[in-house]
Amino acid sequence: MKGMTIVICNYNYEQFLAEAIDSALAQDYINTRVVVIDDGSVDSSRAIMEGYGTRIKSIFKDNGGQVSAYNLGLESVKTDYVLFLDSDDVLYPGAVTEVMLRFERSDVAKVQFRLDVIDELSRCTGVYVPHSGIDGDCRKLLLDGWLYPSPPASGNAYCVSALKKIFPVPETGMNRYGADFYAIYGAALVGAVSNIPRSLGGYRVAHGNAQGVSFANSDQTDKAPKAFTSRWVTLREIALRRLGTQLPPNFHDFAHEKAYFWSSVYQAPLSTRWHWLLRDSHAYLHTIVANPFWSLKKKIGTLMLSSLCLVPYSPIANYAIRYICNPLARHRAD
């Protein structure tokens, strides 16, 4: 029986760490190992990890960021497959079993599954990510610059041999975080992707982030677009050097563009919103109109909602922007 290692990367998440570890240990797939990497936490994480004794493999390191934790985690894995679980997220019972069935049925580099968005008390919000999925070879899409629909870190499991063609990722001052970006899109350059269209885990969004533009706990709204651009540059370098694959200079991704959209027009004066439309909206509109993953109905609906940002009555405009950018923020009062 092939094995799965769940690697939990933790930094100062004592509030949620035990729940993440418990969800990993509760998996019914017999050959499942649990490794917890603490990235220099200064809270009570160490004591929590030590309380599990030999039920988990604990690794303690100096703080170096998520990229360094992924690099070390992949180096420590002895199984054929790995799942990187964020320490504030959870896996549902049976998740690993379903994932392993997919790996056994087909030769893929990555299996992905939906995640329910949960709050600080682990209650489901009624929202899940991603809203669409894709099966098969995503390499051609990446070569055309399109980032395919994928869940956040905890919703992905990988063939270790595929990831080792991408990792280790350079650990630089500007590249401490976003390790899941390299895993998600790097793995798809190596092999096919299999999508499980139902939720097998929970993705936690803190209250403060629930009001923001995206579900990315690791990136602030104003930093996320620049971070994605920097990561794409690094992925291009890795793909060329290790795979002999030439990725285009720029990428297309609606999640990325809506962060710019949000920061440019949300709660902005009407003149600023019109300026965005006339001068800065090309990339945003392109990721809607040319999006290879969306139906015509979704494209038209998103364009119509986007046009409401030009309504002079700001409550309507801001509601439309929130509706597009983050379902959890739709009911926020202005």
Rank of each mutant, 00 (worst) to 15 (best):
K2P: 12
M4D: 06
M4N: 04
T5G: 07
I6F: 01
C9L: 15
Y11E: 00
A18T: 12
A18Q: 15
A20S: 15
A20H: 05
A26H: 07
Q27H: 00
I30N: 06
V35L: 14
D38L: 01
D39R: 04
G40A: 10
G40R: 10
S41I: 03
S41E: 03
A47I: 07
E50M: 13
G51N: 09
Y52N: 04
G53P: 03
K57N: 02
D62Q: 14
D62M: 06
N63G: 15
N63R: 15
Q66T: 11
Q66N: 13
Y70K: 03
N71A: 07
L72M: 10
E75Q: 12
V77L: 11
V82R: 00
L85Q: 08
D89T: 07
L91G: 05
L91P: 02
L91E: 03
L101S: 14
E104D: 09
R105V: 06
D107F: 05
D107T: 06
V108H: 12
K110V: 15
Q112L: 06
L115A: 06
L115N: 07
I118D: 03
I118K: 05
L121A: 13
R123Y: 10
R123M: 07
R123Q: 14
G126N: 07
V127T: 09
V129H: 12
S132A: 02
G133D: 00
G133M: 02
D137P: 04
D137K: 01
C138E: 03
C138W: 00
K140S: 13
L142A: 04
D144W: 00
G145Y: 04
W146G: 00
A153L: 14
N156R: 11
V160G: 09
K164N: 15
I166W: 08
P168Y: 11
M174T: 14
R176N: 02
G178A: 04
F181M: 04
F181G: 05
I184N: 15
I184F: 11
A187I: 07
A188K: 10
L189H: 01
G191F: 04
S194R: 07
N195T: 05
N195A: 11
R198A: 09
L200F: 07
Y203W: 15
H207M: 04
T221P: 03
K223A: 11
P225E: 08
K226W: 09
A227P: 00
F228N: 08
T229Y: 11
R236G: 11
R242T: 10
G244E: 10
P248S: 12
N250W: 12
D253N: 14
A255T: 09
H256V: 02
F261L: 13
F261M: 10
S263Y: 06
S264H: 08
S264I: 01
V265G: 00
Y266V: 12
A268Q: 15
P269E: 05
W274R: 05
W276L: 03
W276D: 03
L278F: 14
D280E: 14
A283V: 11
A283P: 01
L285E: 01
L285Y: 10
T287N: 09
N291I: 06
L296V: 13
K297H: 02
K298N: 12
T302D: 03
M304A: 14
L308S: 01
V311T: 05
P312K: 10
P312C: 09
Y313S: 07
Y313D: 03
N318V: 08
A320I: 08
R322I: 01
P327I: 00
P327Y: 02
H331A: 09
D334S: 12
